[in-house]
Every structure is written in C-alpha cells, then in structure tokens.
C-alpha cells in the first residue's frame, strides 16, 4: 500500500485541518495558506492532544490545548507559555508523505518512489464513509487491490478507497468530467445502503 487517498482537496481548503486515519494510524490532515498539504501523526508531542482539533495560524499548525505551533516540517516553532524560549529541535511531530493530485489528497505512511494512481482524467465527486472493510469492498467489485476500484456504471466512476478499521472505510469517488455530480452522489448512497444491508 503506497499512496492512499485521505480526502478531496475541496474538503480541506487552505487554513483547514481535519482528522483522518489509515488503518491504525490517526492522522491530522491540513492545508497551509501556501496551498501545501500535510499529513501528520494526530498527537501533539506535548500532552498528546489530537492536532486535528487545532488551528492553522500563519504557516503553522497550532495545538488547541496549549497553543504550541508546529512548522510545515513538523518541528515546534513556538511555545506560548514560554514566549522567549526557542523550542529545542527535538520537539517534532511525526510527518508522512502527502501530496495533491487530481483533486485528491494522497498520503503514504512510508517513503515511496511510486507514482500516484492514475485517475484517467476523472474529477472528484464526493467522499463517503461506509461500514465495510476496504478489502470487502474490493471483493464486492472483484478488484484485486482496493487502492483504486473502477466501477462499471453509467458514470465511469472510480473509487479511491481509504481503509480505516476492520469494518469501515471511506470511498473517495471520482467520475468523468461530464457526469452529473448529484446523480452520481445519489447512486453512491444507494450503493452504500445495498452494501451495508440497510433498506434504501
């Protein structure tokens, strides 16, 4: 598993941080005012607060608990309780490879040289959580690997799938540029109802 989709870029505009996860790894995904995306461990080194509850200030991500600010490389830049102190360089949030392509934010939990999956010119429609594991979802569509699942449908849909737990994943759906987004969206909800076994 190299690159995993964690969000659509339109859901993480500049200045915003959101929680996310890939299997057992909790992530804070944020977009700096510069437009660069970052995927960090969702745990502040100070007292363990989730950084996804924090806020973007300038080009830093600040923790909501005591306001410690972290630069884009993850190193601590400022400790409000000690404004005159230069934080030691050892105070650092673990960071992961993160980049944007085709309107999707991609994360790799390990170093990788591989390219982002090819979306074939499709455009993002929406993200949708579903109570089904990523591998069960792939099996349903007869796909070998869940990273991207091409779905034969009227809308030329492609799923970039984010595995979350043993019984949940998030589908980031893309479709051909001329597809009607609201009808794709309704089709997705019907699919979810069917797959989760809930009457639509």
């Amino acid at each position: 598993m190299d690159w995993v989709a964690v969000a659509l870029t339109e859901d993480v505009p500049a200045g915003v941080v959101i929680p996310s996860r890939i299997e057992d790894t909790d992530l804070a995904i944020w977009c700096a005012p510069s437009g660069r995306y970052h995927a960090w461990s969702d745990r502040c080194p100070h007292r363990g607060m989730r950084l996804s509850h924090g806020f973007v200030r300038g080009e830093t991500l600040a923790c909501i608990y005591h306001g410690w600010q972290y630069r884009e490389n993850g190193s601590c830049d400022y400790i409000p309780a000690h404004p005159k102190l230069t934080p030691p360089s050892t105070i650092c949030v673990p960071t992961y490879a993160c980049t944007e392509a085709d309107g999707v934010v991609w994360v790799s939990l390990h170093q990788t040289d591989s390219a982002m999956p090819d979306m074939g010119g499709r455009q993002p429609v929406r993200s949708m959580p579903i109570n089904l594991s990523a591998s069960d979802l792939a099996a349903h569509f007869g796909a070998e690997d869940f990273t991207t699942i091409a779905v034969v449908s009227d809308h030329d849909v492609l799923f970039a799938v984010q595995p979350c737990t043993d019984s949940a994943c998030v589908i980031h759906a893309l479709a051909s540029p001329d597809a009607d987004r609201s009808s794709v969206s309704r089709w997705l909800e019907d699919l979810r109802a069917t797959l989760e076994g809930v009457p639509a």
């Binding site: 969702d42 100070h46 607060m49 400790i79």
Partner: peptide, 24 residues
C-alpha cells in the same frame, strides 16, 4: 473537549512519551 481527545487515554507516567516544559 480536551480530555476526551488526548492520546493515549491513560496518563503516561514514564518520561519519553510526552514533552513537558517549565510550565508543567
């Protein structure tokens, strides 16, 4: 809202897992 979002939920007693400063 803070307490329910600290990781881990238990309090680490050994130094190393969290980084205190003089204020702590």
């Amino acid at each position: 809202s803070i307490l329910e979002n600290q990781l881990p939920r238990k309090l680490p007693l050994d130094p190393g897992m969290e980084v205190p400063t003089q204020a702590d």
